[in-house]
Amino acid sequence: MKKLICIVCPIGCHLEIDAQHNVTGNRCKRGIGYAIEEVTRPTRMVTTTVRLLSQEHPRLSVKTSKPLPKEAIFRLMAALESLTVNPPVYMHQVIMRDFEGLGVDIIATRTIPG
C-alpha cells in the first residue's frame, strides 16, 4: 500500500494504491490513472520560459504539450537554454517538437505580436 496525494487538480485527494493497482481515496476517476502512473512512470507538466527577441517581452512563457517523464525535466531545461524565439509568436505555437523522441512538444502559452 502506497500513499499519494493526487495532483491532477487543486483538490489534492489523499490516495492509496496497493500492489494490484487498486486505488482508493479518489474523488474522480482521473485519480486512478494518476496513482497508477505515479507508481510506474511518474510524469509532470513543465512550465518555464524561453528567450524571446523582444525589447518589451524578453521571455516567452511555454509549457509541455503533455506531462513529461520526471527524470527528463532537467534535460529539457538545459535544452531550452540555447533556444531563441522571434516574435510574432502565437498561443500554442510549437516552439520545440518532440523532445528526445518522448512525444512531448514545447508550446507557447501566450501570444506576442510581432
Binding site: 487538480c9 487543486p10 507538466m45 512550465t47 518555464t48 520560459t49 512563457s61 509549457k63 498561443m91 502559452t109 501566450r110
Partner: peptide, 19 residues
Amino acid sequence: CIHNGFGLHVFKEELTGPE
C-alpha cells in the same frame, strides 16, 4: 503566473496563467 492550475472551474481544463 506561468505555471498551470488555472481554469478548472471556468473552462473545465487546466491552463497556465497566460493562457
